[in-house]
Write a protein that binds this DNA or RNA. Structure first.
Lengths: 144, 144
DNA sequence: TTTGTTTGTGAGATTGAGTCTCAATATCAA
DNA sequence: TTGATATTGAGACTCAATCTCACAAACAAA
């Protein structure tokens, strides 16, 4: 994927510098294929002897969100969760209250309806999140 | 509105007691016609000489979410935000990144599409939140 | 009522994710 | 190079939220 040049261009255009720390974080993050938290990422980088300070990790993640590589998720209002979101199909989340499982789903028509509603209010979308809280199939069956 | 007996029944059914603190919080919360935070509510109760400890406020809000009187909102991952959500039309939010304005909107067809997608995965919905981050009409015009 | 058991409350201590500070360092443009 | 500016890291700090624990209130049974 061409993440590196895209990120560098974004940084330049915003008066930011393509430091080794930022590039290392981008690289680490782009290997992720699931949700993660800031501190988790910080510890992973440490383990791999790419010691980047906690402050830098926390400082870089919002930049990556802003330029579209990461998406900030809404479940768990205690900690921030992110997911890599570049060149991937957009999806939403079903979160099971009982087992904590997170199911991803896609719906073209849902996206279209959302787009319609947004336009109606003259709003310009940057991102959105749709999250459904409830119970997954398995947990419903277990509770019978 | 019949919030009081409904809440009492809910508490009974869950082995919880209808204390004066809980009922006072329900009463205060049901007068809200906009978003609020836990601490804000705590301070309001103090002002009205209904001094309920911060702990009790923080303990009661999740109960009220659980029984459907309140909805937990997702914007601002720093603090939890709530809104009263009983007997009102369901709506979603557009959040402006520039001025912070929150616009409420409704869409029947959006809800229907969401429902479809949920069913497809055998998931049982309890609540959901749809939040769009972007820029409102006014801010777009200002930035020109 | 009275008694015993359970549940809830309040004040303040504690937690912990996230932010801030500031001296030292890296980057960049000229 | 050099000067101007941006970034980093270590650890202090913030502050929403939770926990603790002694005391109080609610309830069920007698």
């Amino acid at each position: 994927m061409n993440t590196v040049p895209v990120f560098k261009t974004y940084l330049m255009n915003n008066g930011l510098r393509p430091t080794s720390e930022r590039m290392a974080i981008l690289s680490e993050v782009s290997k992720k294929n699931s949700h993660f938290e800031a501190d988790e990422l910080y510890l992973e980088l440490r383990k791999k002897n790419k010691s980047i300070s906690r402050a830098s990790v926390y400082r870089t993640l919002p930049i990556l969100v802003d330029c579209g590589f990461l998406r900030e998720l809404a479940f768990d209002k205690k900690r921030k969760h992110y997911e890599f979101n570049y060149g991937l199909d957009h999806h939403e989340h079903l979160v099971c209250k009982r087992c904590g499982k997170i199911i991803e789903f896609q719906s073209e028509s849902l996206e279209l309806e959302l787009e319609k509603a947004i336009k109606k209010h003259g709003f310009t979308q940057e991102t959105h999140c749709v999250e459904v809280i409830g119970y997954c199939k398995k947990c419903i069956e277990k509770d019978k």
